[in-house]
């Protein structure tokens, strides 16, 4: 397993958000679903070292990363595409992509090769290479954000609500790209758009009130009555 989380408890101040979350991710793509406030972003922030682990453990490739600062988690091989794109809007696409590799020591020597791969995956970024990232459309900015994360050559790619704020045609394109990516990198994706993401992921987890309540393959989740009722609107 690449990522193993056991009995994770965390929160903000005195407010407990996650209470005993356990999950593991291998060479696969996993969807993390749940309503607003369930703790999806908190879980991601905790994996990335932006939230303190109260109890339990977060292990990446067997190494405990629970107390590591965010930049060291990134260097260990986990890349995050945060919610709301979180680009460097005043930098060009080129600089955004270059920055993705610049501070990850083991990929600096491979940055040209990685850049070629990213530009092949997102051809629009090649066309807009010198454009300021902040001046691009929402969908293109999302591609820059994913491209920047891939420049770090991560072993685990985490995407927090990648379809947020995007029009449906762009959402389909983003999930198509995720489908291509899962062949080369493990993926953890949180989404409100469960229907679309179940087509792209291998497995799914449902997080409610700070705990994993349902776990299964994408097909199992699509048939689950609770998922159908609460997330697929059936």
């Amino acid at each position: 397993m690449i990522l193993e989380i056991a009995g994770l408890e965390t929160g903000y101040g005195k407010l407990r958000v996650l209470s005993g979350v356990s999950l593991s991710i291998g060479a696969e793509s996993v969807g993390l679903f749940g309503p607003n406030g369930a703790g999806k972003t908190t879980l991601i922030n905790t994996i990335m070292g932006m939230n303190r682990v109260w109890k339990g453990s977060v292990r990446f490739e067997g190494r405990d990363i629970g107390g590591l600062p965010t930049h060291e988690v990134a260097r260990a091989g986990i890349a995050l595409v945060p919610q709301e794109r979180e680009l460097f809007p005043l930098m060009s696409v080129a600089d955004n992509l270059a920055l993705g590799a610049a501070f990850i020591p083991h990929v600096v020597s491979r940055k040209e090769e990685l850049l070629e791969q990213v530009l092949a995956l997102f051809p629009i970024l090649k066309e807009r290479y010198r454009q300021l990232a902040g001046t691009m459309s929402g969908g293109q900015q999302r591609q820059v954000a994913i491209g920047r994360a891939l420049m770090a050559n991560p072993k685990l790619l985490i995407l927090d609500e990648p379809s947020l704020g995007l029009q449906p045609s762009i959402v389909a394109e983003v999930f198509e790209r995720l489908g291509q990516l899962k062949k080369t990198v493990s993926i953890l994706v949180t989404e409100q758009n469960v229907r679309e993401s179940l087509r792209a992921v291998d497995r799914g987890l449902v997080l409610e009130n700070g705990a994993i309540v349902i776990e299964g393959t994408a097909a199992e989740l699509a048939r689950n009555p609770h998922v159908e009722r609460s997330y697929l609107g059936i």
């Binding site: 930049h71 993705g100 501070f103 920047r148």
Partner: peptide
């Protein structure tokens, strides 16, 4: 520049 633009993205890009 990364720190000035966006600290969260800077951190998650490996910037100390």
């Amino acid at each position: 520049t990364a720190i000035r633009n966006n600290e969260v993205s800077a951190r998650t890009s490996g910037v100390d």
